[in-house]
Design a protein around this nucleic acid. Sequence first.
DNA 1: TGCAGTCTCGGCT
DNA 2: AGCCGAGACTGCA
Length: 160
Amino acid sequence: MLEKVRPLSIRSTWGDIQLLIAAEGVVQCILPRMDDMPEEAFALQECGRDPYSTYIRTLLKGDRPKQVPIGQLRGTEFQKKVWAGLLTIPCGETVSYKAMAERIGCAAAIRAVASACGKNPVPLFIPCHRVIGSDGRLGGFSGGLAWKRMLLDAEQSKRS
DNA sequence: TGCAGTCTCGGCT
DNA sequence: AGCCGAGACTGCA
């Protein structure tokens, strides 16, 4: 059966962030592709007062946002397990892909974990940006590495 | 650097 | 259903 989803767009200097909200929560988050760090600093322009917009506004400031509901995501059991694990990473901290694999009990499935991260339908809401390589490399990010860098910078600078 | 080991997923045959 | 290649990785040579 078809579920009803509501589109929600948030304008920023990097382009529009587009959300799809289902009855149970957010089910998709699309970020404008940003592979290289843009000249222009990131800033939100038009951002609503609803919980989802507020979440994003807070997160991008580097503060710890109040968790918002996440809807039923489409994916394999393995992927859902990875995504659930990602939700347990506290704001301001980073975890390696390896540690993430171990946490969900599949120490050898590192690449599979990375793959699952890449298929995360709701980046920002499921903090896949806090997962980095063992040697400190960033790895990748759905909307381009610029987002990942920016998010980590923001979170790092806020923690004391 | 380079390369093999390891696991899951999606596309093709 | 089975095969094959690719991937946001690691660790060792």
